[in-house]
Amino acid sequence: MTIGLPRALAYHRYGVLWETFFKALGGRVVVSPESDPILIAKGESLADSECCLPVKAYLGHLDRLVGNCDYILAPRFERIGKNDEFCVRFWGLSDLARGTFPGVRILSYNLKSHRPDSEVSGFMKMGKTLGKSQIAVLAAYKKAKQAQLTADTRAGVNQRLLLDSPAIKVLVAAPPYILRDPAMGGTLLRLLAREGVTPIFPEACGRAGCRRASKATSQSLYWVMNKEAIGAIELLRPRVDGVILVSAFPCGTDSLVNELVLRREKRLPVIQIILDGQEGEAGLQTRVECFADILKERRRGYA
């Protein structure tokens, strides 16, 4: 039994959970390869042209899995709390996968509340579909949950270590599925490194902490991933030199949230970079260099 995991969107949040779970149940797991321009182009050809880049990439990843596994995992994510919702895109992912690849066997669960049983019952059902006993499934879930927690903690610690570096540091406020995708955030991170700037990811502050801190910027915000991306601004203000908001064209939630940040953040320098998959490296490079120069100037000014 082979389960395919698309290396996109929620994979960058729940990937360890999924891999550990299916492996513990004796399955073979294949993860689609890292994004590349060909994969993205394939996704674009499958998607409605108005879809955001990460969703196009998601379809490209699903496409790579078709034919290489018995099941493809495509859950639906609605919320993890009353005021912690996923972008409505995530509400439609399972149906999007099913509708775009009719005939493919899809495994799915529906994450729709903050109660832990929402996730557990989803995993129990998936285990049943795969013909596993309840006890085995529950044990696998527990193991997987623990593994994800460990991985998240480690990622947070690694980011926090970077904060001690004397280099210029920039908080890159974006969801992990952009930052950790070489075809999206990859170029930006490379350019930052070339300028000697250390990028800090929001996970340095832990998700729950970021969600709480996001209130400082937006009272009525209810999107989990946005809260986690921008909440870190408040928490890291004394420790970073600037903020780069990274968004993918045309992101629905960022269209509102990043605009609020740009209008409300008065103390740290902020720029927004919008990735559409078409941007040439040259244009991006100019902006990154320019921003890095500003930050270096500011440091000198304070010294």
């Binding site: 409605d48 108005e50 879809c51 972008c87 409505v88 895109r89 509400w91 439609g92 149906d95 999007l96 099913r98 509708g99 775009t100 009719p102 045309p250 629905g252």
Partner: peptide, 16 residues
């Protein structure tokens, strides 16, 4: 409206 997410989500279903 352009980029309306719920209606884009319904797109594949409507085409089918």
């Amino acid at each position: 409206s352009f980029g309306c997410i719920p209606e884009l989500n319904a797109g594949p279903a409507l085409r089918a």
